Every structure is written in structure tokens, then in C-alpha cells.
Simulated scan of single mutants.
Amino acid sequence: MLARAASRATGRLGWLRGSIGALCGIAVAALAGRLLATALPAFPWLLAPLGASAVLVFAVPASPLAQPWPVIGGNMLSALTGLAVHALVPGPLLAAALGVAAAIAVMSMARCLHPPGGACALLGAMASPAVAAHGWGALLLPLAVNLAALALAGWLYNTLTGHSWPHRKPAPRPEPTERYETSDLDAVLEEWDEVLDVSREDLDALIRAVERRVAAKLVR
């Protein structure tokens, strides 16, 4: 049992690596935010969506949702969307709902879907007293500083621990003519040493479905 727990912590992209990375990333983002708050005391120095972004950047760096453009673009565009909805829609309840809905649409069209962006949209749609007093910059400027610091920490930490960020797909190899077995899939996943945003079972089902489709085409 102890060996299994140790494997989960330190094995293929185990939680220990992600935890240490998040510690470093949030600390760097907080430090950058505090430096900004020294010059602009009324502005927040650390925004809550950074915690969710850190989980993606450091725990699943190969995920499409955790890449630099989704992290930065998704959060910033969502915050802008939420602020715009707040300015146009009366009432916090309706503004909050429309803000998140619109942010999903904007992120999808901009190809930067990032779940923490929903929280940034809520922050904008339910604008704080600081935003009311100092304008949109009271949210956008601290958020941009936090995200830039988190992205820098994510790039450094993932690179130093052997996981490219932005994620680089493995180079294509000649496909074998034999049908694969699940043990081959397990071996490739171990070789890649990445946590993918899809389950092993779904990958297996996808590969087998592609094989069946190719085989059907060859029979025609």
C-alpha cells in the first residue's frame, strides 16, 4: 500500500510534482501581484481563478486546456467579456449567467477554452467595488500580471522537470501493419510520460474504432 501511494505521488506525472509546481507558480504570481499592489493599493494582488489555472498548468501540462494561449487568452478574454456584460446587462443574477455563457462562446471561437475563464467571467460580470471605483483596469491589470507570472513559472518548472510547455506532440512514426494490443497502448502512455485529457479506455475505444473503419475501407 505504501509503495502504491508513493507511486501515485512520484510516478508518471504524480501529484507531488503538480503540488510543488503549483506552490511555486502561485507564489511567483502572488509576489508579482504584491509588487503591483504596492503601486496601486486599491487593486487586488491575487485573483482566485489563478488557483484553477495552476492545477491545469502544473498537474496536466499536456492538456489542450492547459496550454499558454488558453491560460492567458482564455482568462483575459473571459474577464473582458464579463466586464462588458456587466456594463450592458442590469442585475447581477442575469449578468453572471450571461457572462459565463458568453465567455464560453468567446473562448471557443478564439480557440482558447480554459475552465478557469468561467470564474474570470463571473468576476467581471459581478464587478467589485474596486472595478466600480477605478474602471476595468482594476480587474484586467492585476489579472494580466498574475497570468504572466504564472505562465513564466509554468514554462520554467515544466521544462526543468522534463515536460515541455507548451506541449509538443510526439513525432509521427511509421504505423505497424499488425493490430495493436492494449499492452502496446500502456507502453506508449508510459513512454510519453504525460497525463492526457482523455481516459485510457476512451483512447483504446478510439484506436479500435479507427482500425475498424480503415479495415472496412480496405475491403471495399
Rank of each mutant, 00 (worst) to 15 (best):
P116D: 11
G137D: 11
D193R: 15
L139P: 02
P142K: 02
C112W: 02
G14S: 10
L152W: 06
V89C: 05
A103Y: 03
G74F: 07
L141Y: 07
I72S: 05
A215R: 14
P172T: 11
S63R: 01
H134I: 01
R200F: 06
R12H: 04
L185N: 07
V71H: 09
D193E: 14
P115V: 08
W45T: 00
A149E: 12
F43T: 05
A87G: 15
R213K: 08
A66H: 03
E181R: 14
T38Q: 14
A127D: 01
R173S: 15
A5P: 00
F58Q: 11
A105H: 03
G135I: 13
E191Q: 07
L185H: 03
L40A: 15
L203F: 08
T38P: 00
W45F: 15
A62P: 11
A79Y: 00
T10Y: 05
A121V: 09
P64M: 04
P166N: 13
G117I: 05
W136G: 07
D193I: 07
V71M: 11
A32F: 00
W45P: 00
G91Y: 01
T182Y: 06
L189E: 14
G11V: 10
W192T: 11
C24S: 12
L31P: 01
R17K: 10
L189C: 14
A110R: 10
P172V: 14
E201S: 11
L185E: 13
M76P: 02
L47I: 15
S7G: 03
V100G: 02
A95R: 03
I20C: 13
P90D: 12
A171S: 13
E191K: 13
A148M: 11
E194I: 06
A187W: 05
S128H: 12
P129R: 05
L88A: 15
L185T: 07
R212W: 02
T38M: 04
A144E: 10
A62D: 07
G135N: 08
W45R: 01
K217G: 06
P129M: 03
L123I: 14
V219R: 15
C112P: 09
A6P: 00
A209T: 11
R12C: 08
N158G: 04
P61N: 08
M107N: 02
R212S: 10
P129A: 03
W192H: 11
M107W: 00
L94G: 00
V145M: 07
A27D: 05
V188Q: 13
L65V: 05
A105Y: 04
A62I: 09
R168S: 11
V145Q: 04
V71P: 05
S164K: 10
P172H: 08
A79I: 04
